[in-house]
Design a protein around this nucleic acid. Structure first.
Lengths: 201, 201
DNA sequence: CGAATATTTGCCTGTCGCGCAAGTCCTGTT
DNA sequence: AACAGGACTTGCGCGACAGGCAAATATTCG
């Protein structure tokens, strides 16, 4: 198991990330200082910068963790499972908990991250990380050669599809569960994949 | 035609972007101050921030312009042309000039942007912009409905392919022309598109 | 327990982003 | 051609920030 030192570091990192997100949602992005985040997480301001190099990075730490978990989720699927089934399951696993009503604090977090221009860079980094994590897991699963683009292309398409699903979910009125949108977008993706690239549909 | 005011603004923006890139390549990213960039472009430091909100954004301004040009290049292709042909041409158009030997200053610029962690956020933003610009042009060309994911998915795949091509080009030893890599990656993409998603290859 | 190693913290400095107000330069009108 | 109105630039100033450095504190391992 991981030593105490490592677990404490993870806990601090998580506390900082959660505090950053919560404060930013509550007060608005520009009304949160690094010092506030550090205080809320119970560490010194200087320590904040040992973990994150900006408050934007801290706010998006949750998205980064989610990206990595999604890669792991794909790896955890049975190796014999067809790729598409495994991808589908891995991408939906993240939202498995919220049965019907979406958690409003989560909703607001997503709205913040996707809506604030100052966060776009960090958000895109997290998205790219998810794509790469998925691609690596796909490559392992398929045993493709390192220079085969297939894993990255598929992972990219899947990531884009969940991005679209998120947009639609945020825009949905009345609000519905996000799984529904992700599921739907992935189905559309499967259909799109069968469309040829050459011609108009 | 555009008024003098507008043209001056474009010129200043470009001068700042070019100066930022050149200085960063010459001295290293962290040895360039905003003041240096402003001075090299012949404007006051305060004016710098009227155009860009960080030096990283200024450095990536060239990539942003390139992304927009690529979208325009696709729009400029004959409407009757098959999508794939038009995409191929639009993506290669950007590099049409450097015939054989890659311009070392451009190479170093790309190496900087893709290699420096501090620039990743801005770089990803530029990539996303290219994807979206391409997607919009594709949607216009095909006349798809606004909620059809097809344009975004295809644009994303094409963008990822050029990203891979760039990586390979930077790694290529001995150096070769980048068109070759882009061309090759796009061909691979066309092949990949015909692979089913369900099974191992 | 004690040495070796990692992490936290306080202090400090150079840099930054931007609000504000004054100055300067375009533009369209008369 | 002059002028009024609006847009862009510039200097000043302030709050915030990122990270180097070294001392203090905590964890690990022999």
């Amino acid at each position: 198991m991981a030593g105490l030192r490592e677990r404490k570091k993870q806990a601090t990192r998580q506390a900082l990330g959660i505090a950053a997100m919560r404060l930013a949602v509550e007060r608005g992005l520009e009304n949160v200082l690094v010092d506030d985040i550090a205080e809320a997480a119970g560490v010194s301001p200087r320590t904040f910068n040992n973990y994150f190099s900006s408050k934007y990075e801290a706010i998006c730490a949750l998205a980064v963790d989610r990206a990595l978990r999604t890669g792991d989720a794909l790896r955890a699927r049975p190796p014999a499972e067809p790729l598409w089934t495994a991808l589908h399951a891995a991408l939906l696993a993240e939202y498995r908990d919220d049965g019907g009503a979406p958690d409003p604090s989560w909703t607001n977090g997503v709205r913040l991250v996707t809506g604030q221009p100052a966060l776009e860079g960090e958000y895109r980094k997290a998205q790219a990380l998810m794509r790469d994590a998925l691609a690596e897991a796909i490559a392992e699963r398929l045993g493709t050669r390192p220079d085969d683009m297939y894993p990255l292309i598929v992972a990219g398409a899947a990531t884009t599809a969940t991005e679209i699903a998120t947009d639609r979910w945020l825009a949905a009125d009345p609000p519905t569960s996000i799984q529904e949108h992700v599921d739907r977008a992935l189905l559309e993706l499967a259909l799109i994949w069968t469309r040829p690239l050459q011609e108009t549909p």
